[in-house]
Computed example of a mutant assay.
Amino acid sequence: MEYYSLLVIFVLGIAIIYGIYATITTVAAKLSEKQRWEIRGKHTDITLPLRLQAYERMCLFLERITPNNLLLRLVPSAMSALELQQILLHEIREEYNHNVAQQLYISANAWEQVTNAMNETVAVINQASTEIPADAPPADLAKKIFSHVIEKEVQPASHALKVLKEEIRTLF
C-alpha cells in the first residue's frame, strides 16, 4: 500500500511539474513572440520611410535620365556632338553614383530594372553618337537620340518606373 501511495504521489508530482513546465514555456514563447512583433514594428517605423524615400529617389533618377529630360537640360551646354555625348554620359553616371545606395531599400528586381534602364539609355546615346560626326552640332546628336527613342516600343525608364510603382503599391 505504501508503495502504491508513493507511486501515485510520484506520478502526480511529475504531472504537476510537467504542467508547470509547459505553462512556463508557453508563456515564455508568447512573450518572445510579442517582443519580436514589437521590434518588427519599431523596425518598420524606421525602415518604411527610408524605403519610400528610396523609391522616390529612384523614380526621380529615372525621370532625370530619360533622354528627353537629359537633352532639354544639357544640349545648350555643349559645343559639339562629342561633347554632348560626354556630358550626357557623365550626367547619367553622376546621377547613378549619387543614388547607388538606394538599392539597399528596394527589391532586387526593381534595382535590376533601374540599372537596365540606365544601361539602355547609355546604349541609345552611344549608338546615336556613332551615326553622326563627332564635330557635328549637338542638336544633330539630340535629333538622332530622339529618333532612336521613338523607335523603341517600350521606353526603358517607363518600364522601370512601372515596376517601381507596382512595388510601392504592394507596400500599402
Rank of each mutant, 00 (worst) to 15 (best):
Q155F: 05
P67R: 10
R51W: 05
T115C: 07
F10R: 13
E95F: 04
L88P: 10
S5C: 11
V122H: 03
E2Q: 13
A136F: 07
P49S: 00
Q85K: 15
L74H: 08
M79L: 11
L164N: 00
I87V: 11
N109V: 11
V114K: 00
N126S: 15
A117S: 04
H148R: 08
K34C: 00
N119Q: 13
P76W: 04
H43D: 02
T121D: 00
Q127Y: 05
N69I: 01
L31Y: 05
I14Y: 04
V27L: 14
V154E: 10
A108T: 14
F172R: 13
A29E: 04
M118W: 01
A134S: 11
T44E: 08
R73N: 09
A139T: 13
L88E: 01
V149K: 09
L31P: 04
L52H: 05
A29D: 04
E38I: 11
I24T: 10
E166W: 04
L50G: 00
C59N: 13
N69K: 13
V8W: 10
K42N: 02
A160H: 02
E2Y: 08
S77P: 03
F146Y: 14
E95P: 15
E131G: 08
A108L: 09
I87Q: 08
I9D: 06
Q113Y: 06
A157V: 09
V114E: 03
E167Y: 02
I14T: 04
L50T: 01
V11K: 05
Q113L: 04
E56V: 12
Q127G: 07
P133E: 10
A139Y: 06
Y55A: 10
I132H: 01
L171R: 07
A139V: 13
T170Q: 14
L52A: 06
A81Q: 01
L89V: 08
